[in-house]
Amino acid sequence: MVDSAAHQPDSSPDNSALDPLANVQNQDLAEVLAEVENVSPSPALELPLLAAGGLIKNFGGIRAVDHASIEVAPGSITGLIGPNGAGKTTLFNLLSSFIRPDQGRVLFDGEPIQHLQPYQIAQRGMVRTFQVARVLSRLSVLENMLLAAQQQTGEKFWSAWFLPKQIAKEEKELRERAMAILQSVGLAHMAHEYAGALSGGQRKLLEMARALMTRPKLILLDEPAAGVNPTLINQICDHIVNWNKEGMTFLIIEHNMDVIMSLCDRVWVLAEGRNLAVGTPGEIQTNPQVLEAYLGQ
């Protein structure tokens, strides 16, 4: 990463001759990566899938996020931890554009996305879940899944009128894919029940399954293990590991340290809206600053 960040400005004259836009983007990337590098002195060696630098967000007089940076390598499971009120969920909201940052940039797949709408970000392949699982109560579990699929012909008003055959075909395929995913998370038997009838743990599973249904490049999970019994936590972890093996990238907020330590390749620690530390789970566990932030002095 040090290399790529240092090289890109050098190679920019060549690029700008061919494609000025690429140049701007690279400059963006270089700047954000430089910000990230300030925080994380030993970054990964490949270009990040998601990189955010210098994010600031004020709520009234309170600075919830203060020059926070983060980076997610493709194919990784990256953790984001911090004490309550550290600004983790706000950072999630900034990354997914549910809240606009006052300052700072977010790059996804090398392109700036902080000016986009949340739905556009989801369409580009970055999908999030919520801290308290949100399901569409009066839709069936299967409908929850079908909704998540991207670029459906039948979601366009005029196509919904005039292309019934194509829609029926797509729906059939989506149903099969949705049922396969539901099967894998053990919710297939609930497919035709109202999603509102699911238990808390099942809702977490449905939310993750629904995120997967969008065929994303990156899934942001906000406390996937919160309020879930230990058996189900293990199940959820297994699913995450399996999906990761199939190539899915994850960024996970979690308070359960066992989950973070067992899953994550890299952990970012946030405290009072700032980056406190970053490293492998092992490094974070023994980092005195992190211990101080969690346990107090």
Binding site: Q117, Y119, A122, T129, F130, R134, L136, L139, A148, E155
Partner: peptide, 16 residues
């Protein structure tokens, strides 16, 4: 219907 139920979810799933 998804918007009726929870428009934040619809947004998070890429719906305008």
């Amino acid at each position: 219907k998804a918007i009726r139920e929870d428009e934040e979810v619809a947004k998070a799933l890429g719906k305008n």
